[in-house]
Design a protein around this nucleic acid. Sequence first.
DNA 1: CCAAAAGTGTTCAATCTACACCCATGG
DNA 2: CCATGGGTGTAGATTGAACACTTTTGG
Lengths: 279, 279
Amino acid sequence: MADPQPHRYKHPHPAVAVDLVIFTLLNGQLQLLLIERGIEPYRGAWALPGGFMRIDEDLVAAAQRELVEETGIGEAYLEQVGAFGQPKRDPRERVVSVAYFAILPAHKVALAAGSDAKAVAWHPYSELPELAFDHASIVAAAKAKLAEKVNRTTVALEFLPPEFTLTELQQVFETIRGETLDKRNFRKWAGTLSYIKATGRLRRGGQHRPAALFKPAVKGAMPIPTASLEWTTVATEKSSASEAAAKAQYRRGFEDAVSAINKAFADSSKGVLRALASR
Amino acid sequence: MADPQPHRYKHPHPAVAVDLVIFTLLNGQLQLLLIERGIEPYRGAWALPGGFMRIDEDLVAAAQRELVEETGIGEAYLEQVGAFGQPKRDPRERVVSVAYFAILPAHKVALAAGSDAKAVAWHPYSELPELAFDHASIVAAAKAKLAEKVNRTTVALEFLPPEFTLTELQQVFETIRGETLDKRNFRKWAGTLSYIKATGRLRRGGQHRPAALFKPAVKGAMPIPTASLEWTTVATEKSSASEAAAKAQYRRGFEDAVSAINKAFADSSKGVLRALASR
DNA sequence: CCAAAAGTGTTCAATCTACACCCATGG
DNA sequence: CCATGGGTGTAGATTGAACACTTTTGG
């Protein structure tokens, strides 16, 4: 009863943790949520939010639970990045970590910051501090993953509020791809997308012409292939038929060298968007 | 000492297993290696080869070890598919499984079969039996992964011997993509690939014109992006500079519904090869 | 009337796709 | 000489990429 270590196994078992790479777009920059560690090891270093999987909990449920704990937000795009399991990645105990990446839309980010007593902060992806454990590798893999998917699925919408302008959509692509896109080509291409549609409403903002508002054409957060109308239709049917399975999973990248290759890879792929890059 | 369960933890720990989806091309079909289970649960069912990760062993090392144990082959392309961790996926104990897929070249497959006392057999992907556990999901995810990568990296070469003809290369693409390709377009495209080069030698086989032989242009098994020469060059430099990190990792697909979407996805992506499909 | 972002078309280049016949060999 | 797979080019369609000015609003 009072045994401090009541769980016994014939063979040694590793711990299984879930780490989250939570992306958002803030101030025109791709940012991610980090936690300052209050305990050893790596006390004072920044780390990805995460925690141990419970023994009766699905991996993705653990990721979702962590997301809620850190941000207060339960509805967000969540996708597996992969498993990271080098023996010495955690000096205390053998830990296999399954990384997920999440996307928070900018308009919900206010809620997310400071929901907890711990030191939690958004950091621009381009100016990350040194990270604890192997979290730099995880982040690199998640970013590669994100960059690839944004061109070929609807995940860009996950960064945006329910109504958005084409300029905002363009900024999502520009920020994640890290390059500027030609406005006319972008809008021409956006016009072919079946996953957004005009609301007919306008947003009147600053001292300039009001912008037409768009919204996702499909309800639900399931990111779907972009390219052609047929496929989009197929995917849509499927996704409504299997709402419960709606966590697409994905994994790419490993160490810095490999993720550099992966970056080249993503860029060189004939993504739907490649046409849009301007000089 | 005689404690049958000497490993104790404060919190319950899952077991971590590694499962392998071992692909090859045999008789013009994509096939994968399955093991007939001799013990409960799922006794008599076919399952993916796999086993538990050792406590001091890297995940990928565990995968490699399993690969050698099952096939006797240590050198093969190996890539992470992702982590599968539903609570009830193994009825005995909580098991989180990290799946890898491997590619064996046809000319080594003879070695692979029957290397063990267990019932081991190649099964065509198109006629798989019922699989134990959630292995059907794992296989679907691995296949989606494979189909996507074959269009955008050099993994096709992993199916082939060190020297091969363009027809053989075309068959790899056709088999994995599940469609026939136009010979002239394929060869035109293959001519632009920087990752293969002609050996100058010929293979004289049946009663027909001899075929020119090609070989991989880059040594080492690291699969690299295809699209443009620049990127290929970059990737090549990187890959030789980081031989140790040469296990690219990747994960996509989850359950049948999602992997169906993923299939649509892969097909709809403007892959390098799309031009080659004939009616 | 001025600043600021929204919005809009055309042209040229590159790649995609479809399609049919001759070639070299072994038997 | 014939059966078999190896090998080759071209034209039309589609998509990619570059490029600059007008419109509408708020202040």
